[in-house]
């Protein structure tokens, strides 16, 4: 198994551009043999804590805000200042950065963690995937595949 100890997690929901992480994971499943790498989908970042033990490389794919235009994507190597922890106030929602920070403090964070974010469009409840994100998804998936093969490694130099 080439990608043993690699876990790819799509974060999201069935709604609008928030589907991007899940759809990317579905597309990756078409490009690799079963469980090589392991592919999972999650609603909540806190689910990662149940899966990361023994993982050498963790790749997270999620919709994000803060890039220039919908459909734009990039990869960050954790830790990165762009993913500084925002306020974690409630119990129902533990943001990704807090989950990674908690895993780090517990000594459970995989040695290599990469976060792929794709900019979400402005959306209303009930909207489908935006055209911009739909068009960009194949390129995102290609980039993740290349990264997995180390053709274009994810760095913090973007």
């Amino acid at each position: 198994m080439k990608f043993r100890q690699t876990l790819v997690v799509g974060l999201g929901s069935p709604h609008g551009d928030d589907q991007a992480g899940w759809l990317a994971t579905d597309a990756l499943a078409q490009r690799f043999p079963p469980n090589d790498p392991v592919l999972r989908k999650a609603n909540s970042a806190s689910e990662l804590l149940d899966w990361i033990d023994g993982v050498g490389r963790l790749i997270i794919v999620d919709a994000c805000l803060g890039l220039n235009r919908p459909g734009e994507f990039r990869c960050w190597r954790w830790p990165h200042r762009a993913m500084a922890i925002g306020k974690w106030a409630g119990s129902h929602d533990m943001p990704l950065a807090a989950v990674l920070d908690l895993a780090h403090r517990l000594g459970r964070l995989p040695p290599r963690v990469e976060v792929w974010g794709i900019q979400s469009g402005e959306q209303q409840l009930g909207d489908d995937l935006s055209a911009a994100v739909r068009d960009a998804l194949p390129y995102l998936v290609d980039a993740i595949v290349e990264s997995l093969h180390e053709v274009t490694p994810c760095t913090n130099d973007h």
């Binding site: 804590l49 149940d50 974690w88 807090a98 920070d101 908690l102 403090r105 517990l106 000594g107 459970r108």
Partner: peptide, 25 residues
């Protein structure tokens, strides 16, 4: 100040709690 801050000092306890929660899930 937070569970995150506590985790560093009490990793065994927090890991125990997270594993218990995982089994509930």
């Amino acid at each position: 100040e937070s569970g995150l801050a506590m985790a560093e000092r009490y990793p065994d306890e927090v890991n125990r709690g997270l594993r218990m929660k995982k089994h509930g899930n």
